[in-house]
Amino acid sequence: MVLLLGMYGTASRAADTSAPPATAATATPPAGAYRIDKSHASLLLRVSHMGFSTYTTRFSRFDATLSFDPTNIPASKLVAIIETASLEMDAAPKMCTDIVRGPQLLDAAKFPKIVFRSDSIRMTGDKTFEISGKLDLHGVTRPLTLTATYNGGYPGMPNMDPHARIGFSAHGSFKRSDFGMGFGVPAPGTTMGVGDLIDVTIEAEFTGPALPNAAAKPH
C-alpha cells in the first residue's frame, strides 16, 4: 500500500513520463542483507476451537532479517523475532486473552520473545523450498520446518522504491503441547477444547540494498 501511494498518490506522479521501464520490476534483485517490511507482512495462526470452527489470530509485532541470494537460495539465513504479548484476539473476552497471554499458555511476561532461526534450506522446485530451523517458544527449543515459495523481487525502482524488494509465502505447523502449553487441549477422542495443532501462515516482503546512488526513501 505504501509503495502504491508512492507511485500513484498524486496526479503529477501518475502522469510522470520519466517512470522507469517495466523491466525495472522484473530484473533480478541483488544478493545481500534484507530486513522485513513490516507494512507488507503478516503472521497468522489457526487452531481448532471445540471442533466448531478454525479460529484465526495473529501476532502484530515481529521483525526478521534475511541473508539472501536469489541465485543461491539454499545459502540463505533467516532470523525472526516475535513479541509474545502482541498476539491479537479480535473481540475476544478479556478472560480469554488473559489465559492465552498468561502463565497457563504463552506466559508473555516470562517469555517475551519467540524466535525462529533457520539451519538449512532445501529446494523442492525452481522457487519452492523447505526451511528447517529451530523455534524457541515458551522456554522450549524444538525443530520446525516451513514450506516456502519465493515470489520474486526487483533491485529497486528510482524515485519510487529505491531499495531492492523480495517477497515470500510460507506455511508450517506445530503442536503447542510440544512446547509445554497443554492447557485446554481436548481429551483423546474429543474436540472439547482448543486444538493442539497450530497452523502458521506467513506472507512477507523484505527490503534490501539500495540502487547505486539512490537516495533512501521510506517504503
Rank of each mutant, 00 (worst) to 15 (best):
G133A: 10
M123Q: 06
D90N: 10
G167Y: 04
F62G: 05
P162E: 15
P93Y: 13
K77S: 04
R142K: 11
T65P: 00
P158I: 14
T71S: 09
R58V: 03
T57G: 02
P103E: 12
H49Q: 13
Y55F: 14
N72V: 05
T26V: 11
T124D: 00
E83H: 05
E88I: 11
K38M: 11
H171R: 13
E203T: 02
F62Q: 07
T28D: 11
K94R: 09
R165P: 01
T128P: 02
G32P: 13
P29D: 14
P93C: 07
T201S: 00
F68Y: 07
P112T: 02
I73M: 11
S118Q: 01
F174L: 14
T128Q: 06
T145S: 08
D126R: 13
R61E: 15
Y154P: 03
L4E: 10
T65M: 00
A75E: 13
A14E: 04
G153S: 07
V47W: 10
S60G: 06
D16N: 13
E88T: 12
R176Q: 12
H219K: 11
P155G: 09
I73V: 15
A170Q: 00
G125Y: 00
I99Y: 02
R101Q: 15
S120M: 05
K175I: 04
V79D: 14
V47G: 04
V100Y: 03
M160E: 01
M95D: 12
N72P: 05
D119M: 06
I121S: 07
P162C: 13
I81G: 02
A75P: 06
A64K: 03
P29L: 14
R35P: 05
M95W: 14
K217V: 11
D161Y: 06
S86I: 08
A214S: 08
T147E: 01
T190C: 14
E203Q: 04
E130L: 03
S39Q: 12
F168P: 00
D126L: 12
A164W: 02
A109P: 02
H138N: 13
G139Q: 15
H171T: 11
L87N: 08
Y150R: 01
G208E: 08
S177L: 08
D16A: 08
I121T: 09
G139C: 15
T23P: 02
G51W: 15
F59S: 03
P70G: 06
A170W: 00
I73Q: 12
M192V: 15
P112E: 03
L4V: 09
L146A: 07
M1Y: 10
Y55V: 07
T128R: 02
G195L: 04
A204R: 03
T26D: 08
N213M: 10
M95H: 10
I99N: 01
D196N: 09
T17Y: 12
I198F: 02
L137A: 06
V115K: 09
D136K: 03
A15W: 10
K113G: 05
P21A: 10
K217A: 12
L45K: 05
F174M: 09
G180L: 14
